[in-house]
Computed example of a mutant assay.
Amino acid sequence: MELKPIHTRKIYEEIVRQIKELIGDGNLKPGDRLPSERELAERLGVSRASVREALTALAAMGVISVRPGEGTFVQTVRNGAIVEPLAMALLMDRQAAVDLFEARGVLESEAAALAARRGSKEDIEKLGEIIKEMERQLEENDLLEEETDVRFHLIIAEAAHNSVLARLMYTVSETMRQVLRDSRRRLYEAPGNSEKLLEQHRLIYQAIASRDGRAARRAMSRHLHFVIRELKRER
């Protein structure tokens, strides 16, 4: 895989262009694992922050997927024509925090309802394990970890068993992690919020496990409205 040193103002855009070009030329194929963030930064001659921003943009476009503990991989199926314009617009507009959460609320409330009806036994077991992990984090550190929260919501999107909805949710989630990084950190750190968030996630899980689509939709909607209110206080 050949990567060229970068000399441009918008460094992350050039990284995005090079990786997309490698995929288009067939030098990177669906399922291939990308080099680590540090290795990419060294080979491109840029900072790790620029690489991280580029990878976030590529993930939001649906070009790559990030698997915690495994690495970053070229997506097997790409619906970039649908999600790429949305992802790039949101990445450029840093003032869209509340709008982004409202859009997520529309998607994810329905995803929770679908997950309650369609989720497999394995899907529900995964959600249960994440709730246990959240409980451990709160007990040990008095704080929930963002990565665990994100995984919970993405598993719900997958449990809905609708490929387009899952892709849209992944796009929104990855974009949100980029544009709301500081706001989300403050959300978790605010006194009492981790306890409230855990209880909200627990109610969502219980509704999905009980196969109650209405309750799942309602629990998810209430959870996201709470997050929106907290984000508005931070602005």
Rank of each mutant, 00 (worst) to 15 (best):
P5K: 08
I6H: 04
H7I: 13
H7C: 03
T8C: 04
T8R: 07
Y12V: 01
R17F: 07
Q18A: 04
Q18R: 05
E21G: 05
D25Q: 11
K29H: 06
K29W: 05
K29Y: 00
D32S: 10
S36A: 06
S36I: 06
E39T: 09
E42W: 09
R43A: 07
G45Q: 01
E53D: 13
M61D: 00
I64A: 03
R67P: 08
G69H: 13
E70G: 01
V77Y: 00
R78E: 11
I82N: 01
E84N: 07
P85E: 08
A89C: 05
L91N: 05
L91Y: 00
R94G: 00
R94W: 11
Q95D: 06
A97G: 10
V98K: 00
S109Y: 08
A113D: 03
A113G: 14
L114F: 02
L114N: 04
R117L: 14
R118E: 14
G119S: 15
I130R: 03
E133T: 12
E133N: 08
M134T: 03
L138I: 12
E145S: 13
T148W: 10
T148F: 11
R151D: 12
H153Y: 11
A157H: 10
E158M: 14
H161C: 09
N162W: 06
V164F: 11
A166W: 08
A166S: 13
R167L: 12
L168V: 01
T171K: 09
T175Q: 06
T175I: 04
M176T: 10
M176I: 01
M176C: 08
Q178Y: 14
Q178S: 14
R181G: 11
L187H: 04
G192W: 07
N193H: 12
L197S: 06
L197P: 01
R202Y: 11
L203C: 09
A209N: 12
G213D: 02
R217Y: 09
R218W: 14
S221I: 04
L224E: 06
I228C: 02
E234S: 14
